Each structure stands twice: as C-alpha cells, then as structure tokens.
Simulated scan of single mutants.
Amino acid sequence: MGRKRRSATARRRAARLKVFGIGGLVAAVLLVVFWHLVWVYVVVAAAVAGVVAGSWMLWRRDRTARREDRRWRERDAVAAGHRTLAEVDRMTGTEFEDFVAALCRRDGCTRVERVGGAGDNGADIKGVLPDGRTMIVQCKRYAPGNAIPAREIRDLMGALRHHRAEVAVFVTTSRFTRPAQDLCTEHGIWALHRDLLGLWNNGAGLLSFPGINGAGQGDRQHLARWKRTYQK
C-alpha cells in the first residue's frame, strides 16, 4: 500500500515537472518569435528587478551592520560596567585608551577611534558626540597619588585647535592641580578626574559632565583624605 502511494506521488511530481518544462519551452519559443515586440519590456523588467534586488541587499547589509554595532555597544557597556577602578589602575596606557573609547561608544558617540601613540598630536581618541559635535579625548592613566599639571591642559587646548575639534575631554585616573582645574573651567574643557571616571564607569552619561569641568574634587578635608589614601 505504501509503495503504491509513493509511486502515485512520484508520477504526479513527474507530470508537474513535464508541464512546467513544456510551459517553459513554449514561453522561450514565444519570446524568440516576438522578441522584436517585447524586448523593451524585458529589458525594463530586468532593470527594475536588478534595482530591487540591489536595494534589498543594501538594506539587509545595513541592517546587519546596525545589529552588529548594537551588539558591540551592548558588550562594551556590560564589560565596562564590570570593571572597577582598581582594575583600571592595572591597565596599560593602551588598554586605558580602549576602555575610555568603549565608554564613549556606550554613551552614543560615533566614529570613535583610538589614535594615541607616536604622532597623535595631543589626542588619544577622536570621535563625534551624540549631538553631532566633534571631540578629542586625552587619556592619562596616572597613579592616583599624582596630579595633572596645568601644562597638560594647555597641551590639550593646542590639540583642540590642531584637530579642529569642538570639544576637548581630559580623562584621568588621578586628579587635577588647582591651576589645571582653573584652566578647564575657563576654557570649557571636560575634565574627568578619578571620582568622575568612577561615576562614568558606573553608568553616568558623558554628556552629564560638561558643566563640571574638573570641579567636584572636594574640599581640603577631602584632599587630605585623598593624600592619605594614595600618596604613600
């Protein structure tokens, strides 16, 4: 019984293939015979089909790229959120730059690239803020007991002009001297010292720091505790 059923199914399939084959042959013959009348329509149909297929492929490729970029940002956000400042202190300079670049991407910055190294002209990272402004970032993974002097802020100001960027960000695992902090406030430098870096790493957005510009390092008592903790 099963063999008869399979045999009947095979015969029906063969019959359909035969009909399709004959139909295709007839269509080919008609196309050849009437080619002088229909060639324009065939060419137009082929062109439209090519445009549709190409557009569909570009759309699929863009969709895939956007999905991969979103996954990349999500992985960076998760990884960055799991790092502690103690782990950051153990990073190399290059690893610290990659870490800061990942935080920038997490917060919606685009075209982020690490350019630190010889000949970087004062910028370790370049990118575009979510609001469209171009930025450069200087990263200094100093021991917490050290402080960023004013000359490094002046170097960043020069790099801002050299790279023709709109925003300059200084990120450090340390703190800023008073003259350096004053320069940041006067010239609108986004200065993220150790405490602000900790907040950034824990989820605060980059765009929440422009109004601080190096402030928030505490009063004299806070500075005394800082020195007791780090300057050993």
Rank of each mutant, 00 (worst) to 15 (best):
R114T: 13
V115P: 00
T110V: 15
L129A: 10
P130E: 06
V128H: 00
D107L: 11
L129D: 00
G116N: 02
G119W: 01
R114I: 03
D120F: 03
F99S: 03
C109Q: 00
V100T: 11
D98T: 09
A123L: 04
R105I: 06
R105F: 08
R106Y: 06
L129H: 05
P130T: 05
F99L: 07
R133M: 10
T94E: 14
G108D: 04
C104W: 14
G127V: 04
T134C: 03
R114H: 11
R133S: 14
A118F: 02
T110S: 15
E97S: 12
V137T: 13
C109P: 00
C109T: 00
D131G: 12
R111Q: 14
R106M: 04
E95L: 07
A102M: 08
R106F: 05
A101L: 12
I136R: 08
E113C: 06
D131E: 15
R133N: 08
V137R: 12
G116H: 01
R111F: 02
P130N: 07
N121L: 10
E95K: 08
V115R: 13
E95W: 05
D124K: 12
V128G: 01
L103T: 03
G122I: 09
G119M: 02
P130D: 05
P130Y: 10
P130K: 09
N121C: 12
M135T: 12
V137G: 13
F96G: 10
D131P: 06
E97G: 07
G132Y: 08
R105D: 02
I136A: 12
G108V: 07
C109A: 14
D120A: 06
V137K: 12
R106W: 05
A102C: 09
D120Q: 02
D120V: 02
A102P: 03
T134A: 14
V137W: 13
G119R: 01
L129S: 05
T134E: 11
R106D: 01
D107W: 10
V112K: 07
E113V: 15
R133K: 15
A101S: 13
T94Q: 14
G127T: 04
M135E: 02
M135W: 04
N121H: 15
A102S: 15
D120M: 03
A118V: 11
I136E: 06
G132H: 06
G117Y: 04
R105K: 13
A123D: 02
L129W: 13
P130R: 07
R133H: 13
A123C: 13
G119C: 04
A102D: 14
I136V: 15
I136C: 11
G108M: 08
T110A: 14
D131H: 14
L103M: 15
F96E: 08
C104E: 05
G132T: 05
V112S: 08
G117K: 05
V100M: 10
E97I: 02
G108P: 04
E97T: 08
G132V: 07
V112M: 09
P130M: 09
V112D: 05
G132C: 08
N121D: 10
I125G: 06
F96A: 12
V137F: 13
T94R: 15
A101V: 07
G116I: 02
D107C: 11
G116E: 01
V115C: 10
R105S: 05
G132K: 09
L129I: 01
